[in-house]
Nucleic acid binder design. Structure first.
Length: 285
DNA sequence: AGGGCCCATCGCA
DNA sequence: TGCGATGGGCCCT
């Protein structure tokens, strides 16, 4: 049973529709009035909602989500990325971002398929819709989005770790969810512990994603080069798509080389939402 | 076999 | 020029 949607979740529903509309009519550059009309809101109300959600007006958000902007973001990020990798996960480059310490369960855990693991899960409202959060004794193990039905997400994770014991325990996951999706709580206390369960290759890709700073982006081939497999960008794409801890392991910050968003496990609209949200937050500083 | 890729080429306005 | 469409190579499950 889901908790009642809070303000953030209701906001996301509007945001989702707006982004869908904008990207479907990108060429037409729809005005605020047009957009508001499409979602059945007053323009001013929509404007306030967006500003509350992302710190951006819909107009600015629209610009932040275009191909041009994505290309520029990639250009600007290229230099920053090197510095971020130097300082690693705990350095000051993580300003504005979650501090994360990670541990890998590989490849034994992959083979063991979660045997001996107790996974506690709960569904929570977030700025990007309903998320199912999975935690283990060793740390946060999964974040997944459920557009319709939490059951689909559970099936998915059951398949990943078929030998693990799953226990619904929203009381255990609620604080993690609250912290992960609330920038005000980032870096406020101890680093967030996460555990990466996957093949050797996958874990290396996911670790690499953790070095992409907040509000920036990298390409699939950047990531491939970064793990010493410069020609494996396609395999990187597949591994990125299997990232079990979405948002926390920022797979939404990986774009095609030309600035295309290419794909996202939880829907391109959500990827756009995350990128735009980060842009707004980074600009606010 | 088949991907959340990438590059080169080609054809068409 | 620019923008699709196509084909071949690539490398991990």
């Amino acid at each position: 049973m889901l908790p009642l949607p809070d303000a953030a979740a209701r906001d996301y529903d509007v945001v989702r529709r707006v982004i869908g509309f904008i990207s479907g009519n990108a060429k037409a550059q729809p005005s605020l009035d047009t957009i508001a009309g499409h979602v059945g809101m007053e323009p001013m109300a929509l404007q306030r909602l967006f500003t509350r959600w992302a710190g951006l007006t819909p107009k600015t958000f629209l610009q932040a989500v275009t191909l041009d902007h994505a290309k520029r973001l990639l250009d600007e990020s290229a230099s920053v990325l090197d510095a971020a990798i130097e300082t690693g996960l705990s350095g000051p480059a993580r300003l504005h971002d979650l501090f994360v310490t990670h541990e890998a369960m590989t490849p034994g855990a992959y083979k063991a398929r979660g045997a001996g693991l107790t996974v506690r899960w709960g569904a929570h409202q977030t700025p990007f819709g309903t998320a199912v959060v999975f935690v283990t004794e060793r740390g946060l193990a999964g974040v997944a989005f459920a557009d319709r039905d939490v059951g689909e997400v559970l099936d998915d994770y059951h398949c990943r770790w078929p030998e693990a014991a799953f226990v619904e325990d929203a009381a255990a996951t609620a604080p993690v969810a609250a912290r992960v999706f609330d920038p005000a709580r980032w870096a406020a206390d101890r680093p967030l512990r996460i555990v990466l369960i996957g093949t050797d290759f996958e874990v290396r890709v996911w670790e690499r994603l953790l070095t992409i700073p907040f509000g920036r982006a990298a390409t699939y081939s950047d990531v491939a080069a970064g793990i010493g497999r410069p020609s494996a960008s396609r395999a990187v794409g597949a591994a990125v798509g299997r990232n079990p801890i979405s948002f926390v392991v920022p797979c939404h910050r990986v774009l095609g080389k030309g600035g295309d968003l290419t794909g996202y496990r939880w829907g391109l609209t959500r990827k756009r939402a995350m990128l735009g949200w980060e842009t707004g937050l980074a600009a606010r500083s």
